[in-house]
Design a protein around this nucleic acid. Sequence first.
DNA 1: GCGACTTATATAACTTGCTTAAATGCTATC
DNA 2: GATAGCATTTAAGCAAGTTATATAAGTCGC
Lengths: 157, 157
Amino acid sequence: MDRERLVDETLMLLPTLMRLVERPSPVEMDEIARRGLATDVQVSPGHIQVLIALTRGPRSVGQLAEELGVSPPGATQLVDKLAEHGMVDRHNDPADRRVVLVDYVAGMREVARRIVEDRRRPLHNAMSKMTDVEALAFVKGLRLLARSFGAAAGEEI
Amino acid sequence: MDRERLVDETLMLLPTLMRLVERPSPVEMDEIARRGLATDVQVSPGHIQVLIALTRGPRSVGQLAEELGVSPPGATQLVDKLAEHGMVDRHNDPADRRVVLVDYVAGMREVARRIVEDRRRPLHNAMSKMTDVEALAFVKGLRLLARSFGAAAGEEI
DNA sequence: GCGACTTATATAACTTGCTTAAATGCTATC
DNA sequence: GATAGCATTTAAGCAAGTTATATAAGTCGC
């Protein structure tokens, strides 16, 4: 098989895809507005990542930075914005008061779920056109790429 | 199968992957320097996309914008930078003098090939760990996603 | 052919999502 | 209890986009 062709096509597709993912769809904005949040909320992919990460329990800023592959100040900024809109809350870890634990504001878990749902929709559509085997291979491919590019960028372990 | 899990994992992986892809690896910079180009060349994913697109022949700025999913001014800027470094050249289309055709500078096709090769390496590594079926499914998945997000962003046909 | 339009590209000003470097506040070790 | 070190934040800056606007070339009605 011609791997080179596939590699080139991936190099063409990945940046284009991310430009599309980053472009906030007006529909989504509407839906958020209908739920009573400010209309000008800009949910970037990074914010979505934070919201998904928090479904698995509270996280420190440092943990979020690592999970997202972002610098600690970057994580701080993402949390800032979400906190500004009342989605998440910070409180000090009683065990180590340097650590700031981030978690959903009470009752916002459900709102977060619906915001993520909006993002999930086009992805869900695309995946519904794949067989189970293809969907698994696709995600496996993403994992491999993330690992490989991480190693190339000199990521420590 | 639990598609929701796969969708969430994709939403977590994609932005992280793109942050890694966008981060220029110092190794690559070295290699470009060794080839006699300025050391401060910043090859972004967009520039790589242009170089790959040009392997299939000269392109107008508008065509590049469309292929990359970027606005015309965005494409102009990408071409600017590549022209600055002597990689590509502009000349008017004799058939329609509004059109600016972009092509490799004579002899730069080979240099471009090697620059793209650097980008290709981690991707190639990752893909070498997939079976043929998986690699095809992976690229098919990327195509589906690009299409689906494109539609969601209200792309006109 | 002349003027009103449309189209292709370019320029300018701004936005956003990150980055690194320095500052702050807490922990731990000696 | 000084000093080294870690988690987070603040500050400043950069790169890759965007929109709005300008310029220059082609098209069409008359």
